[in-house]
């Protein structure tokens, strides 16, 4: 009799807890209206940017003086820029560059940050001290100042040019925060019994780190990566806007915005700078909402 009830309870428990943490998080996220709308808008922007070569086929590699600085019309939905290039085409291709640079920086930074954070947190001791001192150092370098100085030097005498150099320089100066965050989470997580159990049955350190610790810190890594993605898009466009980022020949939101530094364009030819300005702000807004939605979804305490 007693065994029966306990097995019944077991079944009940199983039914109630049959959702994996991922499924719970997904359901919470799907219920979050703001985050879902942001997600859809962001997906539309990304798809348009990715499909730019198919959708927007107007030639933006040539300068066409005859069609220079035209306001929006049926031919050119968003008008043309000073070189007669179609702004609609430019803004889609520009999105490709800006989103790509932001995404690649995020990937590099999170790879470095997660690996070093895991190592520092798991091993502790001198390795931890060593890594964290470097982190302290990287974090005190003023970001824009050093990216500009470094990019300015390397652009003159380096093998990799343009966009990839920018990605490397930005990543090299931004991994400190991610490392610090992953480490602190690992420090808290490794005190749990399951890690001790994994150790006591003789798992290798490598396996404990990547099979047991990583899945438990991955939720914060994802949230952090989302917010970082927004930050990196802002950083890229800002640097390009100042003339120290993506080379001018490449269409990007930052390059399009920088045309607004000429007061004639800023005042009288608003169609040249409003599209990238709006798109970049909407993109960041959406990513921020998604990031908050994810944070909420992964938080076991939030009840939504």
């Amino acid at each position: 009799m007693k065994t029966e009830t306990s097995s019944q309870i077991d079944i009940n428990m199983k039914n109630k807890t049959s959702h994996s943490p991922w499924a719970i998080a997904r359901r919470k996220f799907m219920k979050n209206k703001v985050a879902m709308i942001s997600f859809v808008i962001l997906m539309i922007i990304i798809t348009l940017a990715l499909l730019a070569p198919i959708i927007a086929t107007s030639d933006i590699t040539k300068i066409n003086v005859l069609e220079a600085s035209q306001p929006p019309s049926a031919d050119h939905w968003l008008g043309t820029d000073k070189g007669g290039r179609d702004v609609f085409t430019l803004v889609l291709h520009g999105g490709r560059t800006s989103l790509m640079v932001g995404f690649m920086c995020t990937v590099f930074i999170m790879l470095i940050g997660t690996t070093l954070g895991l190592l520092a947190g798991f091993y502790g001791g001198w390795l931890d001290t060593f890594i964290m001192r470097i982190v302290d150092f990287v974090l005190i370098l003023p970001f824009y100042v050093f990216v500009i100085a470094l990019n300015g030097i390397l652009v003159k005498n380096s093998v990799v040019g343009g966009v990839w150099l920018l990605i490397i320089v930005i990543s090299a100066l931004s991994w400190g925060g991610a490392t610090r965050m992953v480490r602190s989470k690992v420090l808290a997580e490794k005190e749990n019994e399951y890690i001790m159990a994994a150790k006591s049955i003789g798992n290798s350190s490598f396996k404990i780190m990547f099979k047991h610790l990583l899945p438990n810190v991955i939720s914060i890594v994802i949230v952090q990566a989302t917010l970082l993605f927004a930050g990196m898009i802002v950083a890229e466009a800002g640097l390009t806007f100042l003339g120290f980022g993506v080379p001018q020949s490449e269409p990007s939101w930052g390059n399009m915005l920088s045309s607004a530094r000429q007061s004639d364009i800023l005042q009288n030819k608003v169609w040249m700078w409003i599209p990238p300005a709006v798109l970049i702000s909407v993109t960041i807004l959406c990513i921020n909402f998604i990031g908050e939605g994810l944070k909420d979804a992964f938080n076991p305490k939030s009840s939504k």
Partner: peptide
């Protein structure tokens, strides 16, 4: 707050110059 956190400073600067300096002429640019 959400807007202020999402609009990059350079976009805000351009928009402000356009609105407050050029059109309303409240401030020099």
């Amino acid at each position: 707050n959400y807007l202020a956190l999402a609009i990059p400073s350079y976009v805000l600067a351009i928009a402000f110059i356009y609105i407050f300096a050029f059109n309303l002429q409240w401030f020099p640019s």
